[in-house]
Design a protein around this nucleic acid. Sequence first.
DNA 1: GCGGAATCCGTAAGCGCTTACAACTCGCCT
DNA 2: AGGCGAGTTGTAAGCGCTTACGGATTCCGC
Lengths: 341, 341
Amino acid sequence: MADRNLVRLQDVAAHAGVSIATASRMLSDPNYGGRAGLRERVLAAAAELGYRANPHARALATSSSSSVGLVVHDVRDSYFALLSGGVMSVADREDLLVNMVCTYRDPARELEYVKLLVHQRVRALILTGSAFRDTVHNAAMRAELRAYQESGGSVVSVTRGRDVGHLVQIDNAAAMRELAAAMVKLGHTSFGVIAGPLRLLTVRDRLQGLKQGLKDHGIVLRRDDIVHPDLSREGGQSAAQSLMSRRNPPRCLMAVADVLALGAMSWLRSAGIVVPDEVSVTGFGGLPAAIDAVPSLTTVEIPLERVGETAMDLALRPASPRHVVEIEGTLALRESATPPA
Amino acid sequence: MADRNLVRLQDVAAHAGVSIATASRMLSDPNYGGRAGLRERVLAAAAELGYRANPHARALATSSSSSVGLVVHDVRDSYFALLSGGVMSVADREDLLVNMVCTYRDPARELEYVKLLVHQRVRALILTGSAFRDTVHNAAMRAELRAYQESGGSVVSVTRGRDVGHLVQIDNAAAMRELAAAMVKLGHTSFGVIAGPLRLLTVRDRLQGLKQGLKDHGIVLRRDDIVHPDLSREGGQSAAQSLMSRRNPPRCLMAVADVLALGAMSWLRSAGIVVPDEVSVTGFGGLPAAIDAVPSLTTVEIPLERVGETAMDLALRPASPRHVVEIEGTLALRESATPPA
DNA sequence: GCGGAATCCGTAAGCGCTTACAACTCGCCT
DNA sequence: AGGCGAGTTGTAAGCGCTTACGGATTCCGC
């Protein structure tokens, strides 16, 4: 990477006949004064030479960059892809670069990446997806993030179920409770729950809301009504299989995430079990794929792109005062859930 | 971002009782010699202090960073999400950071982002998705990329239909031709083509392959058998609507991308037109959603994650010799296409 | 045990920018 | 006219790292 002759501030200054300091000020401090016409001259010189500041030099001098760090669990998952889309569209508008990293739901990797991004002097750190249930890890994260904030960084936690920095929250428990209530209202009494790993806090939240929603109507789940597969399509498939092969299969399968529900529906179809005639299915999240599914999936819809945009907006605000944005999930009652026959 | 007291190389050197130069060498040049035990001492000091090199200082000094630039059209699109997933998993393994940007299929934005990334001194630049049919723009891109390569950067073009840097290619035309032949073999004679914007080169390639495949069997498309909607689900919907509302609707709808085909199927369902009984549908790309679709979508499957991984692998190689990896698309004949009644 | 080569390590000069500080220019008031 | 302050510009000192260069040390064969 031997710099081909990239033009430096030096060159611009010379070309405009001013000192490098003045050039710097004209170029990067809009409310600096300066002799009449000076700024124009410098700007013209910069334009003419095709000058672009070296971001690393700038970062080194100011110790802050114009990148933001985006931490997701897995881009391949539509949930995060859409959310990232929202983040990126705002980044585009604000001339920010996004450093995206995937944790693959591994706490160690998450911490490592956070440290890496902090050392990159990213302007803000957006953490998305469920936090973990892991006291040591959380303490380490918290320490790292606090130090980062103290040094001027802005942290945004998005649908994490944990409170660090600005928050973009959805009330997982409440939405799930509502969905559960809706299922009961349809007449369902026997449930199977596809819940995902308990080490994920949002899984716990949703599960708890679900239980509460059922309990409100006098329905109590037994331990083996709930399975905890991987948070993936395959996980949903195997979960459906295991739940439906019990001596007394449930009439309603509730998953804590759309991707699980879609996996479940896929298995059900391959097993010749008709949804919703023989079993109802629900999800959570609002993936576009849920609408296109056949039958279309009953779920809680979250405007994921908007969540991402909001997160990025918050990322641009100073760390304090702290902002909390509550995003509404909306019940989408569709074809996959009907009253039991 | 006033640096809280981050530990600098300075500190490590002092702690290990060596000069800063030696510390630097021990830390970042694995095949430098050094007195016995010296390296260990420095490493220990670094570990003890929790030292991490300032990437900007390093980038400034060496004028090259450990980030790579990833240019996609739109993360929200599963095609790119999966591809990015592949890229990121290799990046994770290689300790590289990924700077992802979305062009939203806007040539100006693409060029601007490429320049930005080049100025960020990214180690490599991965360009994905179709290139544009725009001579001036392509010339500008080519100039920019060539200069970048000359300064040591490595460029990878992924499924772009254009030849800059290392290549990860799929033979769009050939695969599409095969798919078209397969449809003819099923007995289809009347076709509607959902093609996407012609300014995208891969759209042209696929379309050309499609035409060729039909022509091989004596079928020639008329101009109005082909529509050019946006490359999105909505585009697919409106395209299907327009094609099916002709006086003589086609019995086989071929789309140049899965997302278009899925949109088409969604409209067909809402219009009460049964796939494949009344009309067959095909796609191109290999999104997971195509398998889950009902009926499952006949398409050309591309191993998108592998494409991404391959791209990142190539990105790590020096710019020359130039590598070309041809990825095979495989015909996936599924439920959405059957012989016409 | 000695000369020269080989190896090791420290000093210092950047990389390209920002910014504190000093110098200088005006304009205006007394 | 002199002086003061506001406003403008330049000089130079970093930011934290790499690396050319040269002095010091070691090693080897003789």
